[in-house]
Design a protein around this nucleic acid. Structure first.
Lengths: 340, 340
DNA sequence: CTGAAAGCGCTTACAG
DNA sequence: CTGAAAGCGCTTACAG
């Protein structure tokens, strides 16, 4: 049923080589011959088999997006947006796109190198890796072209794409301070996550630069989870009555915090101002609409693929760290502080 | 750098065939030999190359998810959930998963058969196909195992997975009627979409069975778009002052309608009750929380992959149409009608 | 401008 | 239980 190059060659009355050359756009083919081959190929519904192609030509042209812990958090479209960005890049170029999920378990069974060999992957964009994952160790010393979203490895074969988390957090806090908030709590993700550390640094720096006394009790962690943020926000506010604003390092946590605050009988933003991070779609729909630091996940994906293709080409000149822009979205969850 | 079966054979001191047999779990291999091969493979970071594998064994074990018009609508995680469902199924079985996007344009350049051959695809789950797409025509007569989400082709090689849209719509309307609504408008998707036709049928049947006079002016289309629904809802209510409830055949449209209604100075659900369709995540976060017909997109994906694998195996006994359950989610956008 | 031949990394009868 | 050999559908020097 399925036509092969042999079938096309036979019915077009040419050799296999010639058919191959037509499909690889060699220029030294007679125009008539070329047309005939193309015509026959069309009739036979023929398309070159990619597997055979990558096997015989030694050039791998496949870019993979590997999502770790494909935790379909229904609240965020970010993975899909990253996918969309990577996909878009591969469409504009002659790379093939493939998608894989991985997990801590899977990583134990097969090394990153094995995985890439197995699937003829020229390079991969990897997202969601934990510092405890075995790929994490392997990526420090790999020579397989890779791009990590949000994590910097210091390995020339492993590029990084992310926003400037530290600066973004800094700007968020500066904004709160401009709104006369002095006692600002932070609900952070996890001490193990690089982005959390950076965002906390931004928080600290903003306070320091504005001569605001840092209070370690104001710094809490909710593991990026809505329900934990719900609880933490209540504890934090109960134990620190002076807090008038909360910086949550993800929108999901901000949404949990808003719920927690409401449940305490307090109002956002009248009593407590909230600022989030990410700008997931939900943040525009919750009440009040969430003020947040926006990052564009599709751009993140696109730029990752682009950087990856440069690493694959052996382009070592440009920096392996790509910063994409962020933007503070002013909405309704922050209000000027009137308590003093 | 990359180890091949030959390297493993050589350093293990066995033949290529033997290594191959070890990795294919042939039972007639000496235990010691097997262990040695596995040991060497590990040392060499070897994993069998899938491309070579599918080339030489003639069994294709790859299931593709093809999303048409990968329109990254940030409001809906449904595509990602479908992906997740298909992916989950492939993980539980020995199928490989691949993901592709397609478009009306791409379909013109390459037939569905060419596409599948090219990528060694045993079968595909296809979502988002329009009736005007060229794949649509081809799928009517193809013998490539395929599963279409929401579209029934009447081709034994093409299965269908969906909820019972007609019945689901029927139940939604029955619920509104039970809440004493008699004048119920519908904001439907598009006359060209199969699901829209079915949902409208459910709407009509519910009215008829409850002896409610059908008013064609109460039936409107908003092409599944939030902004169009915004406009349409206002027109509909202005021209039909007696309407007390609106059935929107997607949550996105329901959200647009709620906005439209609010802008008119009316209240949901006090003045107008709204019921949506899909149960996207947003519906829980808008104000008021949206009452809607829930369908589980991840289950949709999973069942599609499952049905596909049956078609691939040539199992022709079971029906090619799979209905997955739906559920009415009672939230805050519907209220008992008190106008009469 | 065209074609014969080697080879990509595997699997699978087949022989022993 | 093991291995030599043919073949999967292609590409790519190489020769003409």
């Amino acid at each position: 049923m399925t036509a092969t190059i042999r079938d096309v060659a036979r019915t077009a009355g040419v050799s296999i080589s010639t058919v191959s050359k037509v499909f690889n756009e060699y220029t030294d083919i007679n125009k008539k011959t070329k047309e005939r081959v193309l015509e026959v190929a069309k009739q036979l519904d023929y398309a070159p088999n990619m597997a055979a192609r990558t096997l015989s030509s030694k050039t791998q042209k496949t870019i993979a997006l590997i999502l770790s812990e494909l935790n379909i958090n229904r609240k965020s479209t970010m993975p899909l947006e990253v996918l969309s960005g990577v996909y878009k890049y591969t469409e504009q170029t002659d790379f093939e796109f493939v998608f894989y999920g991985t997990s801590t378990e899977k990583q134990k069974e097969k090394t990153f190198r094995q995985f890439c060999n197995e699937h003829n992957i020229a390079g991969a964009v990897v997202q969601g890796l934990k510092m405890t994952d075995s790929y994490y160790q392997e990526l420090k010393i790999t020579n397989i072209p890779t791009v990590l979203i949000d994590i910097d490895m210091g390995n020339p074969y492993v590029g990084t794409v992310s926003i400037d988390s530290e600066q973004a957090a800094f700007e968020a806090i500066e904004y709160l301070i401009s709104q006369k908030h002095r006692n600002i709590g932070i609900i952070n993700g996890s001490r193990d996550a690089k982005v959390s550390i950076l965002r906390e640094n931004g928080y600290r720096r903003a306070l320091v630069e504005n001569n605001i006394q840092l209070n370690e009790a104001h710094i809490q962690y909710a593991n990026f989870e809505e329900d934990i943020a719900f609880l933490i926000s209540q504890n934090l506010l109960k134990n620190n009555k002076n807090i008038t604003a909360l910086f949550c390092t993800s929108d999901i946590m901000a949404i949990g915090a808003i719920r927690g605050i409401k449940e305490m009988g307090l109002n956002v933003p009248d009593d407590i101002s909230i600022i989030g991070f990410d700008d997931i779609i939900l943040s525009q729909y919750v009440t009040p609409r969430l003020t947040t630091v926006a990052q564009d996940a599709e751009v993140l994906g696109f730029e990752s693929a682009k950087l990856l293709s440069e690493i694959i080409s052996g382009n070592t000149d440009s920096p392996k760290l790509r910063i994409i822009p962020h933007e503070l979205k002013y909405r309704d969850s922050v209000k000027e502080n009137e308590t003093n």
